[in-house]
């Protein structure tokens, strides 16, 4: 497809994370060269020593802001980008980085480093949208390469990217899976946004919620179902916090329902 229009200038950035989302893009082996033919990828530190100061038409950011330097970087990227996309659980719901939230960060640092005076890190990890305006979010831990391609295609063709405003359960039903909740498992599928194709439940593993909250998630009913299955208070909290400790939609209701001060 050549429209004669200049290719959009695209940047990929990583903040603190495992780099798995950038890797999912590199893992699109069949489509990678095709994608690179349609965009001008100018900044991709993990794969290129070339640098480009911007401005960018589209900038994808994975990872969490964990210190002042990263916050400054994110603000610069916002200034320099027409469209800023938060990519993956660390950027959209805090991911595993946010499990620290509400805990004693000084004790955490000390337990890992002993003398931790050289370690500079924020006690709370927030979604990128709490720091700067974010135009779009791609969810998942890691993101789905297929969703990335769909998103990019929409942007390139001028269409509005489609949000999946329904739960993992919908995808799971369409695959005609046996419901793991009915088998006694604690599955976050009913309140988690679709997009993964119900990957985990299809392979016999209950959903861990890495795509984040589906709009209007009935969190209270999910908590009640978990409790009826005999899940301890602690286990319910851990399930909700594994990838979503800074997803407000979950934490607010969890705090209210279980009356937890520190959340």
């Amino acid at each position: 497809m050549s429209t004669g229009k200049p290719k959009p200038v695209v940047a990929l950035y990583g903040l603190t994370c495992c780099a798995g989302c950038q890797l999912e893009i590199l893992n699109l082996e069949d489509d990678l060269l095709d994608i690179l033919g349609h965009i001008n990828l100018v900044q991709f530190r993990m794969g290129s020593s070339a640098t480009h100061p911007g401005p960018y038409d589209v900038c994808f950011v994975e990872g969490s802001v964990t210190n002042e330097a990263e916050l400054t970087r994110l603000k610069e990227l916002r200034e320099n980008s027409k469209i800023l996309v938060a990519m993956g659980a660390c950027a959209t719901t805090g991911g595993v980085n946010a499990i620290r939230n509400g805990r004693n960060i000084e004790e955490f640092k000390q337990s890992v480093y002993g003398d931790a005076s050289h370690v500079n890190t924020f006690p709370q990890i927030l979604p990128l949208k709490s720091h700067v305006k974010i135009d779009y979010e791609l969810q998942g831990c890691p993101i789905s390469g297929q969703e990335f391609v769909e998103f990019l295609t929409a942007l390139l063709t001028g269409a509005e990217p489609r949000e999946k405003n329904y739960a993992v359960c919908v995808e799971c039903r369409m695959k005609e899976n046996v419901c793991l909740m009915k088998e006694g498992e604690l599955c976050l599928g009913p309140i988690t946004r679709a997009g993964c194709g119900a990957l985990c439940p299809s392979l016999g593993f209950p959903c861990e919620g890495c795509w984040g909250p589906v709009p209007q998630a009935n969190v209270e009913s999910e908590i009640d179902m978990f409790s009826q299955k005999g899940a301890s208070f602690d286990l319910v909290v851990r399930k909700f916090r594994m990838f979503n400790a800074s997803a407000e939609e979950f934490m607010k209701q969890l705090k209210r329902r279980l009356n937890i001060e520190w959340l």
Binding site: T16, V96, L235
Partner: peptide
């Protein structure tokens, strides 16, 4: 690289949650 404190926040997690968290 920002510090991530895995060994600290892993504490109190169940033994069957460890591999999925540490994978990250």
């Amino acid at each position: 690289e920002g510090t991530r404190l895995f060994e600290a926040f892993l504490r109190d997690h169940g033994h069957n949650e460890v591999s999925h968290i540490m994978s990250r």
